[in-house]
Design a binder for these strands. Sequence first.
DNA 1: CATGAATGAGTGTTCATTCAT
DNA 2: GATGAATGAACACTCATTCAT
Lengths: 194, 194, 194, 194
Amino acid sequence: MASVPERLIDAATRLFAAKGFDRVAVQEIVDLAGVTKGAMYHYFGSKDDLLHEIYGSLLRMQTERLDHFASGSAPVAERLHAAAVDVVVTSVDNFDQARVYFRSADHLAEDKRREMRAERRRYHERFRSLVEEGQAAGVFRTDVPADLTVHYFFGTVHHLGQWYSADGPLSAKQVGRHFADLLLASLRPVEGSS
Amino acid sequence: MASVPERLIDAATRLFAAKGFDRVAVQEIVDLAGVTKGAMYHYFGSKDDLLHEIYGSLLRMQTERLDHFASGSAPVAERLHAAAVDVVVTSVDNFDQARVYFRSADHLAEDKRREMRAERRRYHERFRSLVEEGQAAGVFRTDVPADLTVHYFFGTVHHLGQWYSADGPLSAKQVGRHFADLLLASLRPVEGSS
Amino acid sequence: MASVPERLIDAATRLFAAKGFDRVAVQEIVDLAGVTKGAMYHYFGSKDDLLHEIYGSLLRMQTERLDHFASGSAPVAERLHAAAVDVVVTSVDNFDQARVYFRSADHLAEDKRREMRAERRRYHERFRSLVEEGQAAGVFRTDVPADLTVHYFFGTVHHLGQWYSADGPLSAKQVGRHFADLLLASLRPVEGSS
Amino acid sequence: MASVPERLIDAATRLFAAKGFDRVAVQEIVDLAGVTKGAMYHYFGSKDDLLHEIYGSLLRMQTERLDHFASGSAPVAERLHAAAVDVVVTSVDNFDQARVYFRSADHLAEDKRREMRAERRRYHERFRSLVEEGQAAGVFRTDVPADLTVHYFFGTVHHLGQWYSADGPLSAKQVGRHFADLLLASLRPVEGSS
DNA sequence: CATGAATGAGTGTTCATTCAT
DNA sequence: GATGAATGAACACTCATTCAT
């Protein structure tokens, strides 16, 4: 059986994903984890801490993977495509974590929110630099700010939790590929512009 | 001075947008609106009702506008482009309403949630039929399901509330145009495929 | 159609009987009566007033009838029997009123409660004097205080509302006769005592 | 000092008896018990639960005692007499509990009300079977349905709370004996009937 | 390490009553 | 006579957190 902190994180992830942070009582979490409240407060300083932990671990993982994909030697379009597919796939593979991440970001206390925002900005900037690299290389259009393109794509990823279902017709990888295809297609230089 | 129900809706919209439904006390709403709790419950059956009202009015407005844009006589690509710009612009023009809409949809009680979901599905389907029309006309690619394209774009729109600021460098219309450009570009038929 | 005050009394009687005074909102009463709150407060000073009215009218009616039965010229046992039957029958005929009377007596405000208690005491004493008359005449036992006999019998009557149903096998008159029979039987002088 | 749940039950019993369930605020109960609301809700799921507990414990006790008295080997008239005295005495000994029982039965939530009604029916039926036993043995009259006799007597017992006072001239046992005497006298076979 | 009793501030909601119209 | 918007105090209940054991 998993350790107490792990069981707590798992329980919290499931519940936060299903009902949203504010709708989950600490009592529910410890009940689902099969421990007592005292135990929870032994390992975690607060309910916020649980959210922070869940929130951070996915973000860290995706940042690492983005770094990996971005730093390859393939052409930039291929690297961006691979990174785009990957963020969709890992978001689906960790669906509950991702849903928590997508819907409960604002519920963190001020200090932790700042920390998370910084982390997210790093992720955003890493992604953006890939787009800018492509623009500099002349393979991506330049008439749309790279920044906006990143927001454009990440809205899509964030929205996954509101409609994607593993029972649906498409696998995570298929969805990821389609989205990456759409992204890359939208970045093709516009004909007739310099 | 606006009527009591209007003041309540305004206050609730501002607060729900800023802090999320669950973080706003009814007392805060009535204080901001300058009325008493009793007055609020005279006009609205519950806190949920306020959310439902806010939620519904933007959705109805956007549905009407989408119908208007979709039913024009211009080429389908132009109609889709105009509709895409419009949904961004109206989301920004009613930024607080949109933020409420984007982040608090799941907080409605079961019956109202069903109602809203049906309304949202209608909107989604109307948008999708535009994409399908373009696919049938041969001007949009067919290798990505129309459904997925709609999710793709609406994620983007939903995400606006998380980063857009009126104080930033781009106007709502500029952002809308860029996003519509990206959408249309991503839908161009793929070279070398039938 | 009945007058507004009558409709209000009827509605209040039905609702108080069914749910108890404290569980009925003034709004429910006026809705059932088909009038507005303002109208109610025009005719009645308070919700308490409605209860007082309902409460009092049955008590006055039963007091009058008791006076009538008690003051006849028949033997005292017959008069007591008739009075006992009558209080059962009128309680059943005005079942809702009686239930209000039985269960909501304590909910009156202090001044009206005193008034009602005085009225009830008069009723009680009138009944008791019948018993005492029989005791003096040697037809009723004297080893049980008349007072206690009256409490004994009125508990029975008050309790009607908790089990009697018009759909049951016995008519009000049948129940009344059985109860009066039991009362009279219990009052027969004990053999071997003076 | 008594345990927290005990103190809460005691306080609730006193207050419910004095003012009726709906007129007692949870805050009053916890104040009287010297604990906080949180503590109350730690031990009892709701205000209803308190009522249920109070209500049930007297009923259980009286049911047990009735079983004891009914199952003796004395003549049925003596057993019924003893049971009748006992229910009066225990109702007076637990006067507050009994008053709660008598006046607030209808305030329970649906599920608990059903449960209590079943328990009360068992009690009623146990008592009735004593009457029927006497009828079968030829010592009690048969012209009045046993069922009705039970309602007759229990109305009397329920009514105790509305007039009995320990400061009055009669002890509980004296009242019980008088009432039992009246009951037994009323059950004597009618002269001249078979 | 872990318990679970206890806290206390806060929640959404109800409702008898008033009063300007 | 009658309306219904508005009041404001009260209500039952929740919950993250603490702490003696």
